[in-house]
Amino acid sequence: MSDHDTQRRQFLKTSLGAAAVAIAPGMLLFDTAHGKTEADSSKVRWGMLIDTAQCKTGCNDCVTACNKENGLSGGTLPTDSQWMRKIDIKDISSGRETSLPMMCQHCEEPPCVDVCPTGASFKRADGIVLVDRHRCIGCRYCMMACPYKARSFVHEPLHDQKPDVPRGKGTVESCTLCVHRVDKGQQPACAQACPNKAILFGNLNDANSEIAQKLRSVASVQIRADMQLNPGIRYQGL
């Protein structure tokens, strides 16, 4: 009888525990929302300068490295995720041809963050625009809003994701600027992979950084600068 009683108590305890699991996330979220100083500081703004003169038509090394680093299939069907793609552009009036990589431009005023109903799209203090897949409900409004078509929707169940890059069916994803590498002090995979060193990664806010110095000395543009979103990815030679 007493044995039965302890078991019953145990059962009640565990069910209470389960109830707590259900409620706790909300309570806890509330706690962390205010709280500690940010680890990624706004003194830093990560960005890239891409030298299109050094970017070869037909070379796909950055895209391949991106796919490998983040565990993307590399498929190019309309339903496959492409965080990074090479675009070949040709000036209609002059005929000048250029090739360049295109991905999330990590805007200072990201439209995807503005439109996201749940706040799943967000910008870290250091300027990296991310999707919090724990909150994303898969409405795809950010894909409609992005002027660069930088985002992909995961159309199928995935398996064997990379431990550092969780991704899953039914949520939207895009270039993370290899945030898991940047937080460890490394370069994004594409910047490292480029054989011509066409992608320069660094802190735009640090006047002494290589990227800031180069931005001061060469002419660079932001894509769709007319929209005044101030992207962190800059292009040289366009």
């Binding site: 909300g26 503005d114 439109v115 749940t118 706040g119 799943a120 409004y141 929707f153």
Partner: peptide, 22 residues
């Protein structure tokens, strides 16, 4: 039609004021 309709409650608990969807 959402990618994660099971999470629809998130739309109520996390509310982004700048989103016209919200």
């Amino acid at each position: 039609d959402l990618g994660r309709p099971d999470r629809i409650i998130v739309a109520a608990t996390n509310f982004n004021l700048t989103s016209v969807f919200a």
